[in-house]
Design a protein around this nucleic acid. Structure first.
Lengths: 185, 185
DNA sequence: GACGATACGGAGCGTGCGTTCCGGTTGTCA
DNA sequence: TGACAACCGGAACGCACGCTCCGTATCGTC
């Protein structure tokens, strides 16, 4: 990884940047040749650096999700967990909805990238935020981190169906809030 | 349509039945040859009755959505609109989630079948039910029929991501209920 | 500057799938 | 029952796309 030739390292970076842009715009459906052309390299070069199109896609998506995780970790010690949590929830949805790569990653295989192995950082950070919000009574206690990720997936679908309608996400947020009568325990 | 030969009419029905089953199970991804084989006909026969795979898919999906519309019309004069509406909402989601054809139809082109032209029956019937539920104060008034269909799409995504978790849909239902503080007008 | 190793590019292969085409078959009607 | 039209089956076509292969170019080193 470090003993690469200079041009190889350059090309690898160009491929990653092009893939990030192309996948974000058109999702997994973008042909690999398009990415290669956008990067200014041949298709063979892409395959020298990534074993498959799917691997390249995963690399791009996981990098983005890791950013979400980092943001969550930065909020882990905030003083008003309820507010912070709900704001974060909405923000993640808004950001992810602008990136078709992430939407496709979730639709594909029911969101494998969000679930198993990789993406664990995001999972634990999100669960932490949720638990703190629940501990101060801001969020209903009958859901866990897995439920939350499922809700994010759903909100992304809503956003894709009717973009920009902020108040639809608010319906879910209202449903998440702890209120008399909707707790199941 | 009526002056068809007997075998043609028979085959058309077989194709429709096979397509309904195959699309429901595997969605739009199922190869047309599979449908033809399942129907016990050749691929050419399928194309004699439907101009394209997409047209066959639309026919199947619209038929199913029309069933939903009919069910909604049957509830239009019920005496407890709030309860009826929310029950219907949940029931549609549960039924649709068992049918990958419908899920795919929504994902594809952001749910074109739900939106424009065809499927109008479902739209108006759903809007009617919603309005009645709102008029008795059972459902928040800052949403309309379009919002509602978007929410259905989202709930389907949730259901697909983590199947069978009934309480996630309940979160949305709780968000839909009219309660102090979440109205925007 | 020359030489070996490394990487590049893009033509080409294999595959899967939607769609078409046509020789044979079957239903319909006089 | 004969003959014509409608219909059928499935082989074949075209296309798109993931992936590989190899002759050529570039880099790092002595």
């Amino acid at each position: 990884m470090e003993k690469m030739r200079a041009d190889a390292r350059r090309n690898r970076a160009k491929v990653l940047a092009a893939a990030e842009e192309a996948f974000a715009a058109d999702g997994l459906a973008v042909p690999l040749d398009d990415i290669a052309r956008l990067a200014g390299v041949g298709a063979g070069t892409v395959y020298r650096h990534f074993p498959s199109k799917e691997a390249l896609f995963q690399a791009v998506v996981l990098e983005r999700i890791e950013q979400f995780a980092e943001e969550a970790r930065g909020l882990a010690t905030a003083e008003n967990p309820g507010e912070v949590f709900l704001d974060y929830f909405v923000r993640v949805i808004k950001q992810a909805s602008l990136n078709r790569a992430i939407c496709d990653a979730l639709a594909e295989t029911s969101g494998h990238a969000f679930k198993a192995g990789a993406g664990d950082d995001f999972r634990v950070a999100l669960a932490e935020l949720l638990q703190r919000a629940q501990s101060v009574g801001a969020v209903r206690t009958d859901i866990d981190g897995d439920d939350l990720r499922a809700l994010i997936v759903g909100c992304l679908a809503v956003e894709r169906y009717s973009p920009g309608s902020r108040h639809l996400v608010r319906i879910v947020v209202d449903g998440l809030r702890a209120s008399t009568g909707n707790q199941v325990t």
